[in-house]
């Protein structure tokens, strides 16, 4: 491991890399603030997909290529489709929340953010090859994959072999989630249109703008096929 330290003892970045990093992060901040201000759910869902896609581009610039294509496919693709189909089954608009009811949330967020900003000084410098996270087990995987697993992609080797039980648990989580969605929505295509009568009484709709749309025939399928 000492060779890594001699190879690059100083974090050195070329200026284009830094400019790319800064502009992508600035784009992410703009998109996130836009999501806060939006009221149309369609715009919110689309901007969330944009956020995932921009962060995938940012992952590529930080050498995380496997994470980048997973985020682009799953984060920007599948979860946007899931949220769009849920939005079609539920509602199109969100009602605005008065400012005085947001003050509590704003206070909590500012305090938590200030506490985290206070801790930023203890974080290792960006790109430091000698930081604790980059020194020990991660680089051991790097050194031993070639002789133990014999495949070039270290991320795949760690995911499927060194941390295989973790990946197995992930698969169990996905299966449980698919099962849960099936149990919640059913397979008969009536998701979102079924008239529920809790305690034998019908909850009258007063304000939801999409109440009439629930009776209209909808062509979209329930969202389960995509996630399983």
């Amino acid at each position: 491991m000492s060779g890594i330290m001699t190879a690059a003892s100083e974090p050195s970045f070329v200026v284009p890399v830094l400019l790319l990093d800064i502009s992508l992060l600035a784009l992410l901040v703009v998109v996130a603030f836009a999501i806060v201000r939006m009221r149309s759910l369609f715009a919110i869902v689309m901007l969330q997909g944009v956020y995932s896609l921009v962060s995938a581009a940012w992952f590529v610039s930080l050498d995380a290529v496997d994470v980048a294509f997973t985020e682009a496919a799953v984060g920007a693709g599948v979860s946007t489709v899931l949220m769009l189909s849920a939005m079609l089954l539920a509602d199109r608009k969100s009602t605005p929340v008065p400012m005085r009811r947001q003050l509590g949330a704003l206070t909590v967020v500012i305090i938590a953010g200030a506490a985290m900003l206070y801790a930023v000084g203890d974080m290792p410098a960006f790109g430091d090859p000698n930081s604790p996270a980059n020194s020990y087990v991660g680089m051991d995987f790097m050194a031993k994959t070639a002789e133990e697993i014999k495949i070039p992609n270290v991320v795949t080797a760690v995911l499927a072999s060194y941390r295989g039980y973790d990946t197995f648990g992930e698969v169990v989580v996905i299966f449980s989630a698919g099962l849960g969605v099936l149990l919640l929505l059913g397979l008969n295509g009536n998701a979102g249109r079924w008239e529920a009568k809790p305690n034998g009484q019908v909850i009258k709709d007063r304000t939801a703008p999409s109440a009439s749309q629930a009776d209209a025939p909808q062509s979209d399928q329930p969202e389960m096929e995509a996630s399983t």
């Binding site: 995380a64 997973t70 984060g75 979860s79 980059n134 991660g138 790097m142 973790d166 990946t167 989630a177």
Partner: peptide
């Protein structure tokens, strides 16, 4: 010089669990 693969693996798992 390679970047650290371990955070990538953890985040790959987290992305999929997040969609679930």
């Amino acid at each position: 010089l390679y970047s650290n693969p371990l955070p990538h693996v953890l985040i790959l798992t987290a992305i999929v669990v997040g969609v679930a």
